[in-house]
Design a protein around this nucleic acid. Structure first.
Lengths: 146, 146
DNA sequence: TTTAAATAGGACTAATTTAGTCCTATTTAA
DNA sequence: TTAAATAGGACTAAATTAGTCCTATTTAAA
């Protein structure tokens, strides 16, 4: 069970957190990547994904950049995680039984299904309005802890 | 967030499940790997690990093999998962804050800690006595669903 | 209308992790 | 003594992650 979050998810979360805290204006990739210590071109990709999944809006051209597509309280951690990684699950059968000929007779299957629900519920409970007020990220440190 | 279980964990779980169902005797790697559709040499490594972490006992030599080191009801899914993958966590900071200079000021940190506890609790609740009685694995299918 | 600052997106590469294999040594029942 | 088993180190292959790089497009402002 490799349950570590990927950098991609970590970066996406940081990024949305930054946008939540600066939602009165448009922020460029350059600015976000600088503030949140994320490689610029990589962050650009991540923002494209967040854009496609309707979490952020983009403005092209000079003075362009990104902004949350809806209020921070309307964006859950689960939204961001699933935007980047797709469906959260320990294995595909927990999402769709049909993906696994085994599942019908697999003793462990119900456990993975439960676990998936636990995780999704927990991630659903946290929105970026809540997260944004907890404490500010420090800018000194280059990378996070996974 | 890559939360898929690894084959290693999947194999380990299947393997312990098999041993739980045949705990009246010693089973060889050859037998288990055949019955549970797991590559033999790889399974041998996994069993070595389960051995070191005190989940199974081994007997060497002719008629040797493996057996659970304690009753199936004394072995949780968490035991097996952590035996193979080490501490269950979304990131190292949730296990030990010191691993991340960031965590003290990281808004998301408390979420990962909560989530880790959710997952561990769920996995702790399932033991192999419970799992063993649910239903038998079918032998036809070659691999599981992650 | 040109320019420069920005996003969009495809194609590629490097690094890391996962999933194994292979070989030799050791143990032990028959 | 032999053959069937585990023990364990070293190695390799495949897959995934974590990026980079380049070109195209958009748009505010000079």
């Amino acid at each position: 069970m490799n349950m570590h979050i990927t950098r991609k998810v970590d970066y996406a979360v940081r990024c949305v957190l930054f946008l939540a805290r600066n939602n009165d204006r448009i922020s460029s990739v350059d600015e976000i990547s600088g503030e949140m210590s994320v490689p610029k071109t990589f962050l650009a990709k991540i923002l494209q994904r967040l854009m496609k999944t309707g979490i952020v809006n983009s403005t092209r051209g000079v003075k362009g950049g990104f902004q949350l597509a809806r209020g921070p309280q309307e964006i859950s951690l689960l939204n961001v995680v699933e935007a980047i990684d797709g469906a959260v699950a320990m294995n595909v059968c927990a999402v769709d039984k049909k993906m696994c000929g085994f599942s019908a007779s697999c003793s462990v299957h119900p456990v993975w299904v439960e676990l998936r629900e636990d995780i999704r519920n927990r991630l659903k409970r946290w929105d970026f309005a809540k997260l944004a007020v907890i404490k500010k990220y420090q800018r000194v440190i280059k990378r996070d802890c996974h």
